[in-house]
Design a protein around this nucleic acid. Sequence first.
DNA 1: TGTTAGCACTCATCAGAGGTGAGTGCTAAT
DNA 2: ATTAGCACTCACCTCTGATGAGTGCTAACA
Lengths: 348, 348
Amino acid sequence: MADALNERSQNILEAIVEDYISSAEPVGSRAISKKHNFNLSPASVRNVMADLEEMGLLSSPHTSAGRIPTGKGFQYYIDTLLEVRDLNRNEKQNLRNSYRFQNMRMEDIMQEVGRVLSGLSQYTGLVMAPKFISTVFRQIEFIRLSQGRLLVIYVSETGLVQNKVIEADPSLTAHDLEKISNYLNSELNGLTIHEVRAKLKQELQDDRVLYDQVKKQALSLSCAALQEEIEDQLYVSGASLMLGQPEFSTPEQMMKMIQTFESKKLLIELLDQGHSAQGVQIFIGSESSHVDLEGCSLITSNFSNQKGAIGTLGVIGPVRMNYSQVVPLVDFTAQLVSRVLDREIEKE
Amino acid sequence: MADALNERSQNILEAIVEDYISSAEPVGSRAISKKHNFNLSPASVRNVMADLEEMGLLSSPHTSAGRIPTGKGFQYYIDTLLEVRDLNRNEKQNLRNSYRFQNMRMEDIMQEVGRVLSGLSQYTGLVMAPKFISTVFRQIEFIRLSQGRLLVIYVSETGLVQNKVIEADPSLTAHDLEKISNYLNSELNGLTIHEVRAKLKQELQDDRVLYDQVKKQALSLSCAALQEEIEDQLYVSGASLMLGQPEFSTPEQMMKMIQTFESKKLLIELLDQGHSAQGVQIFIGSESSHVDLEGCSLITSNFSNQKGAIGTLGVIGPVRMNYSQVVPLVDFTAQLVSRVLDREIEKE
DNA sequence: TGTTAGCACTCATCAGAGGTGAGTGCTAAT
DNA sequence: ATTAGCACTCACCTCTGATGAGTGCTAACA
């Protein structure tokens, strides 16, 4: 149906969307007929506009204002009109130079990526670290805290360090713990947490385990340490840039926006949705999807290393976003980060 | 000079400040003479107000509005009029129950404290983790990344895990690293980073070190790992509550506020200022101090364990803050956190 | 039949005018 | 010393009319 647009309608829709992207204001028929040389009078443009409005691609805030693209209109623009040009060599090099990953911890890299995404796009940058379950086991350490509580430190293949506290048999000595971690480090090295869990489950069913004290303790400890999910880590950068956008300029909208960013829950949910997809994904936060992100668009892409640890990064901005600029930025950055993750792994 | 206030002036100033705290609106003479039974006519109150204004404790936005306390006025109120009542047993127990520190990582505890501070005060909660330099050495681990880069994991006595990446001789084997970390773990245990540095410096000057390969490598690695500062960790909770305050309700002020919170730099600076003090401290962000925090007040207190790892927590809100409620909250929370830090240390 | 000029109409936005009320400072009476 | 009385100030609200951008419709035109 929407594909039934003839060329002229498409051109006009495109012109309206692009004008609206740069002005944030309703677009009138006169402006379209003038700026873009279609050789059409405003009246003709108006006719087309009326058709587009009927199809649900445009809307007018009130009778005597111009037209604004609807969510559906943006969707159509993105799906069929948007041409994403690749970055040229120069731009790629510039982007590479923007990132300084020398001797950075994984956390810092994530944060830095968010900062640069935000800085270059002038919207809000999001980076979600690789999910715990998809990371590859590298090393585990146990440190005794008081009262039978153990600090577990887990390091993934990519150098991501995570820790949690678990309850444990208070009679375990430091020496026991060392033996246990040595055992686990040699047994589990190179497996994803996913695989680790499968292996643990299998071994626990093996009766012979019962007779090997170290192995038994090791299994029960690692179960406690690795079975549960570790909270997702989301880095948000440049939230204040969002507040500068005219569509979020009222105090109420600002409040809502900051609250949404602060809780992170909704953002993580959204980033998760694109988690299995390849390449750049675009979500348009229309009326249909979550209320709290009405008027927002999210451009994301996954990054991963060769062993499969998958994270997601992206940019969130107003629906009226400069897609032709942001899409390649997100795309190339994801590739870049993927390469950095691979670099972290020691080639042995 | 300001202390030359007679009792009536003090009472009126107090009334004005408290009315203003609860209403956020200029306070008029009529309201004062009515609500507080001073048995004074509005006209008399006005006379006193005029005096207080002359002294710089009050100001009027324009001729026909009421009076607003100035920064100096608030300062006076805090210094000489504010009575901070202690929490009673019930309130203390409630507060204790608000915090759930069971099996939490240090990071989570900090975040949770921020959340609770913010939730109970309805302002913005701040928690700065103990400074790296003040923490007590517990354990260090080295993990090889690619290209001669080492991941250093440092665990403090309180279970705070920090990591960084350093360059290192690529020829070091995993076995070497284990020997080195074993050496360091036994040598440095129980020292603050401050003391560690002194010890390293001393040992490096000892010629005999040159002949002990392990010791030499250990020293050079630990220097690289522990010499530099690790960035301060600041947890900000409930920034959006700040935006709900009428004094920051314009879009511009909201933007400024969020930017200030986002960069964290200024906040860290401020929290640092009270870092050596004992007990609750109050900063009033008047015109004199930083522009970005004009109209804000900061209530902080340090927390520390017996070994001296010092962090800071607090609440930031409008100058027009409910000091009599927030001060005991901050105070008692700091005590609570201190006790939790001590609990983390294994009694051996 | 598609295009366009012309025209009446709509409606957000802005500036100015007038009214309202909270609050003040001053003065004179208590 | 305190206070009642009063003129005065000024932010705030509402009403008004003017302005102009933009629309929809109709009739003329190629």
